[in-house]
Write a protein that binds this DNA or RNA. Structure first.
Lengths: 235, 235
DNA sequence: GGTAAAGTACAACGTGCATGGCAACTATAA
DNA sequence: TTATAGTTGCCATGCACGTTGTACTTTACC
């Protein structure tokens, strides 16, 4: 079973038993992500993807069964990557809560989160298209996306908030709800107004939104008045 | 220039100088709203709209220049109607703040708001499609929608919050931001999870979201006199 | 009832686009 | 170098759909 160094993978949906080039496959997926992000799923033409990838349309059909399977592959590979980045971000900022202030930690997390959104603009353009088409996309595809990206990130946030509540730094009997409130106040307005990064927002405005959001969040979930907050290790 | 009682309106884009039936036009717009809401803009076929409206496709083209103009008409007429309903709701619930509690007023507003969303499910299905396709729709269309629906409603909310802040019932130096925070906390999660009403959410869950959201909001924007607990110097 | 305009049925036209077939080209492994 | 198989360009096919033309039917007012 000798294989070329470049053709070690199993194909995703082409004719069975063929050995296709991994490099071509990667080029296709990357090009497809760009075009799908720009134009959306049913709208992006195979030809445009082929051009973007520097590949013939015929080759695309050698690697993938059809356009939909290509789309699924793009979603899975892209969102797993960005999901990891966000999860790492959350853990990094909330691993140890500085006694100096939970507020500054949350604000810093907010800014870094937005930074990821601009760095991975192409991915979030794709996400925008997914949510846009959600109702017309197979449910399995939506699940695939949720599971590989948003869900783990959210779980990490809930986990950290649970620890913060246990440490008395937060009044969050329901950490999941607190996570939702934090996310809404700190990010939802930004994702909304930038359309997930599509339209720019002045940095000062972003900063104001995050600061105000974190402020409202912390006041809304402040530890019970009688008990001064215990800021210590949250682990 | 005798006109039939049924044909008094000016046409939107058909051949100039013809007198078209208002009843047919209404049927077309209503059917188009249903189908556009269900399938989205470019996706909905003229044939499907014609069937839904009980009209021939040719008649549609006698009343409207093309599919896009029909879509614009649907958006304008539908969102103006729902926008008025929401504005009325806001004014009704926040016109006089019961000393008994701003909290209950906001919660009641929240419930009525959600009720409007379910009553006008067809409209919000349309809104879902608009936001989904926003990037590929002419900007003028998006503006048309924003101006006729969401903007007036939001303005009403900001106005009420400004009065509440002036009356000392709320700590909202920036009423616009407070309105955003209230909207996010009380509604955004619901619109998110129900996909603007597309997928159902148990009433108990809705109630919990609104209650928790209003709670967080009020604690975050509580009037200063009693100085709510603050973590460190949150300013 | 007559008449003119609106509405309808039907079909044609053009287009865009996802696929599939095929033969020629090319790069790699032996 | 040679055989093997991925890659490519190009064309064909089929389909979906917006839009229009046209001839016939219905409707509303005189």
């Amino acid at each position: 079973m000798t294989r070329r160094p470049d053709t070690l993978h199993a194909q995703d949906g082409g004719a069975p038993g063929r050995r296709l080039s991994a490099a071509k496959r990667e080029a296709i997926v990357r090009g497809a992500r760009t075009v799908f992000g720009r134009e959306g799923f049913p709208r992006a033409g195979i030809d445009a993807i082929a051009v973007e990838a520097g590949v013939s349309t015929r080759t695309i059909y050698n690697h993938f069964r059809d356009k939909e399977q290509l789309f699924a592959t793009v979603i899975e590979e892209s969102s797993a990557h960005v999901g990891d980045a966000l999860t790492a971000l959350i853990d990094r900022h909330l691993e140890e809560v500085p006694a100096s202030g939970l507020e500054s930690a949350l604000i810093a997390l907010g800014h870094d989160w937005v930074a990821v959104m601009t760095e991975c603009a192409e991915h979030f353009a794709l996400v925008r298209q997914i949510t846009a088409e959600a109702a017309h996309l197979p449910a399995a595809l939506i699940d695939l996306w949720q599971e590989s990206g948003p869900r783990p990130a959210r779980a990490a946030l809930v986990h950290r908030f649970r620890l913060l509540a246990a440490a008395g730094a937060l009044d969050a009997p329901d950490p999941a709800r607190a996570a939702t409130h934090f996310h809404l106040l700190a990010f939802a307005e930004i994702t909304d107004r930038t359309r997930l990064g599509a339209t720019p927002l002045p940095p000062a405005e972003i900063s104001a939104i995050i600061t105000a959001g974190v402020h409202t969040f912390l006041h809304g979930h402040a530890p019970t008045p009688t008990r001064p907050p215990v800021l210590g290790t949250t682990r």
